[in-house]
Design a protein around this nucleic acid. Structure first.
Lengths: 152, 152
DNA sequence: GCTAATCCGACTCCACTGCTAGGGTTTCGA
DNA sequence: TCGAAACCCTAGCAGTGGAGTCGGATTAGC
């Protein structure tokens, strides 16, 4: 029950973009070096984020990535969802377009998904935690923490 | 971010034990057939549950398994923890004996775990959902649902 | 046109999950 | 007392997917 490393990398990447509030884009290479992550793998990660329209890119020399929106406007469930593909504690759980959670075993003679209640509650807890956290909070948290580290 | 099939099987197994409220133990083979799960694999699953003292066993002919406690007294975080080993959305998160959640990267120059805040919130949500659900609820839920299926 | 950067796809490696196999040990009942 | 029914334990295997690499194509600044 852990998120993939890709998700971890992606979140860090987003935070790094959030910390870099300047107008010019931030190159992936700089992020890779700052976080100590493999550049070639980060390319895949950022591709997911771009596909989900969470970051924008400018190609060519002096290019790089920017947040597509203000950090405060980005809820972390979007980020994690983009990276992880889906967020469900069990394969049979799917998030419907209506934002309701359902179990795809629904038809199996009733008995099949007796565990449904549990997984739905868990998923609810996860989504609530993710949705209730913005990238802005994480950026601020990381900056505060970095400052403490300097002080200490 | 899904729980393993082992955990799913284990939860179903526990529910099945909860449904069988009689005094005599329930054989694993019966559970395997009822749930359509491979018997030889269930043996591994139930071993974990036994190690965590969630079920008791009686060997020999007419043996089987029983819940170690009343279903209402069993919180699902215990069950999932026993099966999954640990419940943390990220590897660096550990649950301390004091029930507090901490990040094992704590020392890494502060910056390392800028994602910490997020994962801790997620883990909190998961644990709360699991802890707030008892096996008794799931048993009742499954019985109610089975009844509906019959009616329908 | 050189260089720095984003893009894109294919490919490898490896750990882990799910599952099987095969043997034990215990206990009940005939 | 024998055998069947159950629990118990260890080893091992095959498939999948995650993590990462590599090579190249494209775009843009200088």
């Amino acid at each position: 029950m852990t998120f993939s490393a890709k998700t971890e990398y992606g979140v860090r990447l987003m935070i790094e973009l959030g910390r870099h509030d300047g107008g010019d884009p931030l190159a992936l290479k700089a992020i890779a070096e700052a976080e100590g992550l493999p550049l070639s793998y980060l390319e895949h990660v950022v591709a997911d984020l771009k596909r989900a329209e969470l970051v924008t890119s400018t190609r060519g020399a002096h290019g790089g990535y920017r947040l597509a929106r203000e950090a405060d406007e980005i809820a972390m469930d979007e980020v994690v969802l983009a990276l992880e593909g889906h967020v469900a504690p069990m394969d049979c759980l799917v998030t419907l377009p209506t934002d309701r959670v359902a179990c795809s075993h629904e038809g199996d003679a009733g008995r099949a998904c007796s565990t449904r209640l549990l997984w739905m509650r868990v998923q609810g807890g996860v989504l609530k935690a993710l949705h209730g956290t913005t990238l802005g909070e994480l950026v601020e948290f990381s900056e505060r923490h970095a400052h403490e580290a300097v002080v200490a």
